[in-house]
Each structure stands twice: as C-alpha cells, then as structure tokens.
Design a protein around this nucleic acid. Structure first.
Lengths: 331, 331
DNA sequence: ATGAAAGCGCTAACAA
DNA sequence: TTGTTAGCGCTTTCAT
C-alpha cells in the first residue's frame, strides 16, 4: 500500500526488494506458472509484505484492458433499472471487473457523448433502453464492445425480456376473466423498443382472442404518469388496464382509489416487471415479472464472452404473477 | 473517434494534422487561454474534425487524476442506497466525473479489498455504512480521499442524517399519541453506526418523555427481517414499533396484517428513511425521511472540495412524515 | 526461466 | 506562446 517513506508501492519497489526485473514481477503476478515456482513464491511474498497493489490505470494503459464495464441507463429513478444494476454489479465483481455507472437523463445526445467520454476507460458498454438511432448504435458497435438491454438491433448482442410472451400471458389472463375491452397505457418515450413491442403484442393477441384493445399515451413511465393516465383510461370504457410498467400501474391504482373506483371489481389493472413494491401496494399488483437481476448478469456475460461467439441475442422469459389487482370483468 | 485506417485517434494524430506539438494539443484542450487564440481554435477544429477524444486512462496516468469516484455500498438491495446512488451519480456527472459502483456484500474484508483494488483507479471513495473498524478507516484516510455516509469517525469527512433529530421526532410523535411503551427493532449488523445512534436517541428521548423503550434484534434490515420481528414485537406488549428502516417496518405491517393485528388501531408502526414504497404500502407508513439524494450529492461535493477545507462533517436533517401507520395508543 | 527495452497516450516541467 | 523532453506504472515483445 504505502512504503515507509509514505510513497505508494510500485512494481519497481517490489522488483528491487525481490532482486528481480520489473517484468518478472509483472509475470509473477499475472502469469504465474510461466515462472520458476520458487521465484514466483518469493516475489509474491515480497509483494504481500510490501502491500503491493498494481496501479489499475498503468496496467490498463499497457495492456489495453481496463477490466471495467460501463452501465449506461436513461435514469436512476426506475426501480426496474435498480435490479439490472444489482445483477450487473454482481456479475462484474464475480469476474473481477469494475462497474462504471452512468445515467444520461433521457437525452440521446448525452447518451452518445458519455460513451465517447468513457471510450478507452472501459472495456465495454451495457446500453439499457438505448434511445439512440439504430444506425448510430451500429456505428458505435464497430469500435466498442456493446450489449443492449431491452432493445434489439440486428447484429448486435442484446438481452431482452420476451415482450410477446409477456403480452400474451397478460391478454390471456384478462380474457379468461371475461374482459372484452382492454386499454394499454404507453410509456414515454413512445418509440421505446419495449413499449412498442408490448403494445404490438397486446394488440395482436387481443385480436386473436376477440378482445378489443386501445392504446393511450405515452405517459411518463412512473407513478406520476400512471396517475395522469388513470382518468382517461377508465373513460375509454375498458374494464382492464395494462400499464407499460409497474410504477405506472401503481399510479393508476392510487388515482382510482382517490376517485373511489374499485380495483379489481370495477377495473382490473396490470403492470410489467414486478419491481419492488408491486407485492405490497394495495391491492397487490398482477404483473408480468421480468428477471431484472438476470438481465444485468446476462448483459455482463455477453460483454465478457470471447469476441468469437458474440452477436448473441438473449431473450429472457417474462412470467405472469397473479395478485389482487385483476379480477372478473364486471357485469 | 476512429481514423480512416480504423485506428483510434490519438493526440499525435491531431498534432500531426494541426502541425503543432502534442503538448500544444494537450494545452489547447486542457488549458485554453494559455494559448494563442488562433492556434487554439485551429487545434480545436482539427480535433473536432478528427473526432478526437483523449484516452482517459492515459490522461490519468500522466496527471494522477482519474476524474472518477468510487461509491462503496454494503449491498444494492436496500432502497435507501438507491437514492444515494442517484444523488451521487448526478453530482459526479455535473462535475465531469465518473462514478464507479462497488458492492461489498456486507463483508468488511471485501470492503477493504475493493478499496485496495480500486486504489489509483479513482480519486476518492464514498463509503456508505462502512463496516470497517475505525482504526482501519483512519489508516485508509491517510492515503486515500474518503467520505463516509451514515457513519462518523473523528477527523474524517462524513455525511450523516441526524439520528438524534429523527429519533426525537419519532418519540415525540408517539408520546403525543399517548404511547407509553415502545419497542425498537434493531437492524443488522448490530454495531451499525446509524442503528446504534437511533436506538440510543430513542431510549434517551423516551426516558425524558416517560415512555418505556425496549430494543429487539438485530434483524435483517429488510421486509424479511421486519416480518421475523413482528411477533416478538407485539409480544413485548408495546403499543408502538419503530423499525430501523422502512422495509423492516413494511415487513412488520405485512406480518401483522396476516395475523389480523390492526395497524394503527392496535399497534402503531414507524420506520426510517421514507424510501420508495413507504407512501403506497398499506397502511401508508409514518416515517422519518432521509434526504437520500442529497446525501449522495453532499458526499460527492465533500470529495471534490479542495483538500484545504476538508474534514467537514455534514449533518442532514431528518423530517417526520406522518401517514396512516401511527395513531392513538389503544385503551 | 528471466532480463532488457520499448512503448501505451497523455501531462507537465523545462526550454526556447 | 510553443516545442522538447521526460516520465506516469505497467505490460509485452524480444533477447538471452
């Protein structure tokens, strides 16, 4: 850590103390086995005694590997992202990597400028709910290792929660309860990959089930947005509301409670993701659970995989969690 | 970004193209003003045209400044931490810094080993709810810039939420509702700085108010821990329960609901922090709100301040949010 | 199996 | 105001 003189211990200090060349110290620590066992043990002992820790910056400059990954998110307010962060950090740490966190505040310009700024500082980028144009993503993928989360782009590695499975389960659940008129509350931004797929899948499954579907929005993907959407949602005459995500759904329920509209007796409400709080809100929320942590872990694995077998696209299942916010259609 | 040849653009490319020395390019970008305006503009233009972005790693090796900060947390499950992360990222980004996230899984050994591993890779550390021994923290502070969150150690910069204010408000609130017997559910680990202060302050304010206080625990600082504590809590005969944090309090309420014990008619329940969910759980939770984001921001500011006026200790106020989980003592 | 030497891309004295 | 020259601490050929 620190020499008696107060200086940080460098590889030179270890080399001098162990009476070997600096390169030998480097090898002893990075490629033991390519060394005489005794020298390697000796060097290790000296390094330990001196409290030597290689400077990651210097190491990165030489090796071109920083052993760190960036996680780029639209914001840090959404509970869904928190799960992704947790999974990513866990997997990164397990692989001996460091995780850099960056929020881009929903601004696509900031998104690419942060990538540019971190370029060289990390070995790869996990882009969650990327807002950038597809062409720009492909261009970036030409020079950087990236993995997308909840967005698919042809030829780029990605991890998404199956939107078709989710929407299908949702519609089948509602249809089986007798609902014939369902409204989907879109989340902003409207062109959000997941938002588009969820709506498309809901509409198409609705058609095949003989359930009428409408879309409203986009609304902010938060309780606030849900509350703002609630009145319009019931005004459509729908007996069931599917929100783009759980916080929106909770916002809907809170607003309906204020108005005295009973959930699920008058209106059923569903969300997506099963984030923190969806189990203890009132009524508890029926939702399509996303494996948030696994998303983060899978994205890290994708990034760390040998470049050979890349371009995978991982599709994770969504599963229906039935709670108390959905019930038989009234009438 | 990338030269026609596919190589990443370096400072040398810019220098060659602009017909100046590399150091001049460096200056033009880092210390404009110390340069002839025309040269500086010319270099800037060339750099822009080539899409030059300085390599942060190389820059750090030369300057000894990485422009990045590490945020070290016991885990990434606690909602309270999420707020701190959000605030820290925001403030770091505003200051042009990058945030490295590291969880140490509650293990003090991992805590210090992650610090050692990141040493040199970041300019400073924010240590949230640090578990390390005080002496070790002081030793680390000798060689690294650190800022503690929710822990105070003599002479070290820190940001804490006022535990006395919080506990005082809590006890006064309960006393005014006629409660005479209060139980505090401690959070693990027992020696957690905040846990200790909260209990001490509750006990002492209880004494001066003539309210009997007991401590139970420690329990896991989560809904799970709260649920496990609930039965024992009511068994004490207390009419009010104060949990170490909100998730615990929510866990208590869920368990009590299962048992048919009414909150707040039979037992009042309070938590700390006012995290996500405390407003929409059922009943909504009376709690002592912590300014989580501001904690993160303040910690970053502390770290980024000129070394001269360091060793500040910031104490942020906790404020009482009265909701529906507290009511008059029964009887 | 080990050492010598050349960089990685940049910053920062020091010169001019 | 600008160029020259050393490094920063490490990895990595290339020799030996």
């Amino acid at each position: 850590m620190v020499s008696p003189a107060g200086r940080v211990v460098t590889i030179s200090d270890v080399a001098a103390e162990a009476q070997v060349a600096r390169s030998t110290v480097s090898r002893a620590l990075n490629h033991p086995g390519r060394l005489n066992l005794r020298t390697q043990q000796h060097i290790q002992a000296v390094a330990d005694r001196l409290g030597y820790h290689p400077n990651p910056v210097a190491r990165a400059l030489g090796s071109q590997r920083t052993e760190s990954l960036a996680l780029l998110l639209p914001n840090l307010s959404n509970q869904f992202f928190f799960g992704v962060i947790r999974g990513a950090e866990e997997q990164a740490a397990a692989a001996g990597h460091t995780l850099v966190l960056a929020g881009f505040r929903g601004d696509p310009d900031q998104e690419s400028s942060r990538i540019a700024g971190l370029s060289g500082a990390v070995d790869g980028f996990i882009l969650v709910a990327a807002r950038m144009a597809q062409g720009e993503l492909q261009r970036i993928a030409g020079t950087h290792r990236i993995a997308l989360v909840n967005r698919q782009v042809l030829g780029l590695p990605s991890v998404v929660v199956d939107p078709v499975m989710g929407a299908t389960h949702a519609m089948e659940h509602l249809a089986s309860l007798g609902h014939r008129r369902v409204v989907y509350l879109g989340g902003a931004p409207k062109q959000n990959w997941m938002n588009v797929r969820r709506w498309k899948s809901i509409r198409s499954r609705g058609a095949s089930l003989g359930v009428e579907t409408h879309q409203l929005g986009p609304f902010a993907p938060s309780q606030f947005g849900g509350a703002a959407a609630a009145d319009a949602a019931v005004a459509t005459g729908a007996t069931a509301v599917i929100a783009f995500n759980d916080p929106m759904a909770i916002g809907v329920m809170r607003r309906l409670a204020e108005r005295g509209v009973d959930v699920p007796d008058v209106v059923s409400v569903m969300g997506f993701d099963d984030v923190y709080g969806s189990d203890f809100c009132s009524p508890s929320l029926t939702t399509l659970a996303s494996p948030t942590e696994e998303i983060g872990r899978a994205a890290v694995r994708l990034l760390l995989e040998p470049a050979g077998d890349r371009a995978h696209s991982v599709v994770l299942p969504a599963h229906l969690v039935i709670r108390n916010s959905t019930g038989p259609a009234p009438g």
